[in-house]
Design a protein around this nucleic acid. Structure first.
Length: 425
RNA sequence: GGAGGGUUAGCCUAAUUGGUAAGGCAGCGGUCUUGAAAACCGCCGGGUUUGCGCCCAUGGGGGUUCGAGUCCCUCACCCUCCGCCA
């Protein structure tokens, strides 16, 4: 949520900056609603002042035993007018709120301007792309040969876009989760959290999934609760409606959770394999930072996510998303794209964003400056560190041999019970 | 699922039969002091206003009333007990 005062006072500038996202958004409606709300509010406040005065007069006169019937009559009349006016004020407020909650964040000045993903800019590359002396297979061919992922039976249980991992496949997924959590807790000082996988509407609104993106979420029937689409939601909302101490910042959390997404509107995209699933595993990184530190923390968080790819030896590139490709709540985003030889393409495996105070304002996450003073909003950041299923994809494709076997990077051996290579069987 | 108790500001705690939120701690500023502590004074929820001030705010929503922290309804959460359960 943007600062309403900023909207009110710099409406043209805001419109201009939002336009770079490609969302043609007119704030005229906001402006007129805001103005009429404020006019009505002034009116209702005047009436309330009069009523408060009369009420205290009544109390005084009653003590003296004087007649108060005319005062009561006036106050009664005021009451109904106040109620009427008050209702139209809250009506305007609700409409305003509806508008403000669906306005996306403003892109940071360092974000490249562009329309779609074509406008994204490669920031750096890491690792050497392997030369194959055989045509590299796609991951689902390899997992089929190895018998470590069963899509057919998953479909029988749950339908399309679900996976059933078997044996070394299940173990690999679990090993990666543990490796990632260990890296972030031991080397990068994040505190491990195991949050609920079901959250309420407030939490979803706090991070920006609601009210705009209800269609992407799995809702629990008969309950105003949702399956988490990412650990960002429970982690960021840990401190909703809290005032943190400045000394406590930055706060760093990491969590493994499954993620549940409807993937509405992605029909025909990535229909085969593990890339796009209704349920997938992810290790998430979340930070709460002071505003002046948040862009530095953003770089560090991105580096923390990159570390996992480096440890695994997976080549990748870092892309700065352009204004037209930014997510709703983000002010700036780096995507990590891992090289997939089977596809011959870079694919997103992590997305690291700075939301500035956009989520903090929605969720009410503030901090009190050291010298006392007014609490102000923190900046929130998050990034995948990493998407586990897609990491499996990358390992299968990058480390495959001609016979379908896959040699595992050394950092995984201990997590795999000593297994160094996945063979058929 | 059932019964009872609770939710007041960053934290802790008050408020006759309904009369318009009192204190304390922490924090910040100041006086005093060689420095510090103590003591004392001021500030210390939000909105609006140049300012005085005004309005709002006792978990959320609604109702009764001239007037609600207080009475009623409802929802959420927490605690205790019963039932069920890994």
């Amino acid at each position: 949520m943007l600062d309403v005062r900023l909207l009110r006072e710099n409406i043209e500038e805001v419109e201009g900056r939002l336009a770079t996202r490609g969302s043609v958004l007119s704030l005229d409606k906001f402006k007129s609603l805001d103005e009429s709300r404020r006019t009505l509010l002034r009116g209702v406040e005047g009436l309330r002042e009069r009523r408060n005065y009369i009420s205290s007069e009544i109390a005084i006169k009653k003590k003296k035993g004087e007649d108060v019937s005319t005062l009561i009559a006036e106050s009664k009349a005021l009451g109904s007018r106040i109620k009427e006016l008050g209702e139209s004020v809250s009506e305007k407020e609700e409409l305003l709120n509806g508008i403000v909650l669906t306005i996306p964040n403003l892109p940071h000045a360092s974000v490249p301007k562009g329309a779609g993903s074509g406008g994204n800019i490669e920031v750096r590359q890491w690792g050497d792309i392997r030369e194959f002396d055989f045509p590299p297979r796609e991951h689902y061919e390899i997992s089929d040969m190895l018998g470590i992922v069963d899509f057919g039976r998953a479909a029988k249980l749950s339908g399309a876009r679900f996976a059933l991992y078997r044996g070394a496949g299940a173990l690999l997924e679990r090993a990666l989760i543990n490796l990632m959590l260990d890296i972030h807790t031991r080397e990068h000082d994040y505190l491990e959290i195991l949050p609920p996988f079901i959250v309420n509407r407030k939490a979803m609104t706090g991070t920006g999934q609601l009210p705009k993106f209800e269609d992407d979420l799995f809702k629990i029937e008969g309950w105003d609760h949702y399956l988490v689409p990412t650990a960002e939601v429970p982690l960021t909302n840990i401190h909703s409606n809290e005032i943190l101490k400045e000394e406590a910042l930055p706060i760093l959390y990491t969590a493994y959770t499954p993620c549940f997404r409807k993937e509405a509107g992605s029909y025909g995209k990535d229909v085969k394999g593990l890339i796009r699933q209704h349920q997938f595993n992810k290790v998430e990184l979340v930070k709460f930072a002071k505003p002046e530190d948040s862009y530095n923390e953003h770089e560090k968080l991105t580096a923390d996510a990159e570390k996992v790819l480096q440890v695994l030896g997976l080549p990748y590139r870092v892309v700065s998303l352009c204004t037209g490709d930014l997510g709703f709540a983000a002010a700036k985003t780096y995507d990590l794209e891992v090289w997939l030889p089977g596809q011959g393409a870079y694919r997103e495996i992590s997305s690291c964003s700075n939301f500035e105070d956009f989520q903090a304002r929605r969720a009410g996450i503030r901090y009190r400056p050291k010298g006392g003073g007014k609490p102000s909003f923190v900046h929130t950041l998050n990034g995948s560190g990493l998407a586990v299923g897609r990491t499996v994809v990358a390992i299968l494709e990058n480390f495959q041999e001609d016979d379908g076997s896959v040699s595992l990077p050394e950092c995984l051996w201990s997590y795999m019970g000593g297994l160094k290579r996945i063979d058929k069987g």
